[in-house]
Structure formats: C-alpha cells, structure tokens
Design a binder for these strands. Structure first.
Length: 95
RNA sequence: UGGGCCGGCCAGACGGUCGCGUCGAAGGCACGCCCCGCGAGGGGAACGACUUCGCCGAGGAACGUCCGGGCUCCACAGAGCAGGGCGGUGGGUAACACCCACCCGCAGCAAUGCGCGAGAACAGUGCAACAGAGAGCAGACCGCCACGGGCUUCGGCCCGGGGUAAGGGUGAAACGGUGGUGUAAGAGACCACCAGGGGCCCGAGUGAUCGGGCUCGCUAGGUAAACCUCGCCCGGAGCAAGGUCAGACAGACACCGUUAACGCUGCUCGCCGAGGUGUCGGGUAGACCGCUAGAGGGCUGCGGCAACGUAGUCCCGAGAGAGAUGGCCGUCGAAGGGAAGCGAUUCCUGGAACAGAACCCGGCGUAUCGGCCGGCCCACUUG
C-alpha cells in the first residue's frame, strides 16, 4: 500500500502496484469504523463483485487493494459500482 | 365485542444470472518422488496447482463473553489457610448464579408478575442527608395541667420551678390502633376489642411454613450488593489447550540451582526433580490430529403436578487459512401511509428488524421490523 499508486473515490481508496503476471489479485480492507461484521461482510462482497465484473480492464500483473472508508454502507449499489469501477480504471490507466 | 396475561413457532418466498468454501468423483500434468538405464530417455505411484460434475454450507440470538460443565495439560490433582461464589424450602440436572413446584412478602378485580428472599430480641461493631424540640438506653418547641407569687377592667394575663407524649407542627420513619376507666392534666397506668411479637403446647406438611390453644401488656425501628456470623460449593490454566510429523539455525553473557532452583497455587505443608530465568544475537512462521453425532432434536408409550427421567422409533452431517455460506435483476410480497366507498373491499405508495459460526455443550443477559398459533383472565352484550 505504501508503494502503490493511490486513487481516491468518495467511499474508498484504490491502491495499485504491478507484480508478477500471475493474474490480477484483489484485496479489500474494511475497518471496524465502517460498521459491524454484517455490514463489513456485505461491503466486501459488493466490492469483490465489482472487481469481478471489471476483470477485463485489469491486466494480469496488477495487485489491487481497495480500502473502504466509513460511510460506504450508505452508498447504493449503483453509485458504489460506478465509483469503484471508475477508480479501478483510473488506477490502472495512470502509470 | 373490547381490554389484558402467559407460552410456543417463523425470521420474506420463488425464478434468472454471475460468483465463493469444505468434501467426494472424474480428468489432468510442471518441478519433485520411486523403478530401469553409463546416458539421452522410458515406466509408475500418489500429493498439490488447475478443469468439469455432484452433495452440503450461519443464528434465535451465531452477539456480549457474565455464570456452569465437558475436553486437554499442569505431581498422583492432595491437605490447611487465605480468597471467591451462592443464600426461603423441596426437587431437576453433568453442573450452575439456570429450570420446575411450593412457601413468604409486595403489586394487580383477575389471569399473572416481581423479589440478588439466610442471620438485625440466638453475638458484636458501624451507618443515616435535609427538616425537626427530639432519630435508637428517644424527645418538653407550641400546647395542656394543677401548685406558688404578682397584676386584674374578674374574662383572664405575666413570672417561677414542676407534671404530662392526648393534640399541633417536622420528617421516609416520632416507640401499637379504636373506645372507655382513670386523672389536676395525662399515659397499657388499668379494661374491652382489633393488629403484631415472644414463650409453652397440640395438629398438618419431607420441608420452608401454615392452622389452633394457653400465657406474657411484650409493642415493633431500618440497613448485612456495611463489617461481620452461619451453612453449602470452588485446585490452576486454557483449543494459541494439548499431541504427531517435517524443516531451519549459532550461539554468547549474567544470575539461581541437585544443601532442591524452576514448577504445581497467593502462603504453609506436601509433591516433582535437573535444569531454570533474563538480556543480546540467530532461525522458522509449515502440514496433520484435536475438529465436530452431540449431556442433539421430533413423535409415541411409561413414571412425575412440573422441570425432567426413561424405552422405542425417526431425523439431523458448515467447520477452514483472519475466516466460504454471497452480488445484482425480475415477480410476488407483511406492517405503515394515502384515496374511493355506508360497508365487505378495491386502487396507489411503500418495501423487510437485530445481526455473521472459529473446540463443543447447558444457561443468563442484551439487540430486534413484524407475523402466525395456542391457552387463560376481566368487563359488557346475546342465548
């Protein structure tokens, strides 16, 4: 995360670094400030679903970490998808 | 019909699409392994990555981690002290602080609910704001009362030392209540009834306790989640317990110790027995077992008021690694809100609470949108 390129979205921060071309790998960080276990689980599953649908835009050597900010549980699915999808695109295209 | 009390159950449904995890089956092959070969190479087994298919995959609270157990290790799991827990009685249970029944007290017309329910006249010590004259061997502020003295408009007033707990006032609480006798005025001082308490006796009950009789004028203090006393219970640590296998490395120094250190428990005893502790430095952060079928549920029979026990029968298979059990879309959808209608009802809107297993159980506590079912109580109406 320290070395990675940071891209901010209203409800999350996307970190990206290039690594071995073993397929893109995704990680999600949801702190306890965001909510209880149920809320954090739901957000993590949504983020992973967005990442899965954006696989075509990410090359095989990327390591992506999404850190979720407090308040993200109030965002709807559509805004979350457009925000995170846009964040992923910007993180990948910016070199 | 309207209020209310108690108990049990459910925890959105269906479809589409894209996904996740354990296990099983099939496929599958790189390094590595085994066999043959001098070698190029050939053959084989199974693990793992991967692919496909199939089964299964969160809760009533999975939660808080507050109690109680199982399990594992700590000598052989021991003794005493200290410390902690519990506290009506009798049962249930592996055990409990839980559950059931009963007792007592309180609340309610009742169904029922509530009580951290031992001991305060069978020991001792302490504590109690404010108000008030006085608050724990009670207390004369006002008042009431006779007596002595003074004054008097003859109604009484003032002063003095006394009597008095009936009345006023204060308070959460003022040392039984009502009526009478009595008295200067009063008082369980005495009497009747009522309420309570002590002692003795009888009866019912396993018991807490209840009922009755006789007697004593005995008349209440509260607080033990204050010390304390009494009775019963409790050894410590926890699945990162504990065990097996594989692998890596490098030790150095100080202190304690086989005259018993360290450990077992805070202390004493007792036990064990040759290493232990600390600092610096180095290495590894793997696999497997434990690991989920259990004090497990449903139904029926029997015993029991019940909790529960017991016999038969049927049903249930998450278990991983910081951790899978899901994301989205559509249809249907409960409460709530709005409109129309006398009404049954119809239409629109709305859109599902609290919350995520981590060794396993039994409880308790807490969170929670709502719905369904059953039993009971009270009031009113009708028959």
């Amino acid at each position: 995360m320290r070395r990675g390129r940071r891209t901010s979205t209203p409800h999350a921060v996307v970190y990206r670094v290039s690594g071995e071309p073993s397929g893109p790998r995704f990680g999600v960080i949801v702190s306890k400030q965001v909510g209880g276990a149920v809320v954090r689980n739901r957000i993590r599953r949504r983020i992973l679903a967005i990442c899965a649908s954006s696989l075509s835009t990410v090359s095989a050597s990327e390591l992506i970490v999404v850190r979720v900010l407090p308040g993200a549980h109030e965002a709807s699915w559509d805004t979350l998808r457009s925000e995170i999808g846009d964040g992923l695109r910007r993180a990948v295209t910016a070199s």
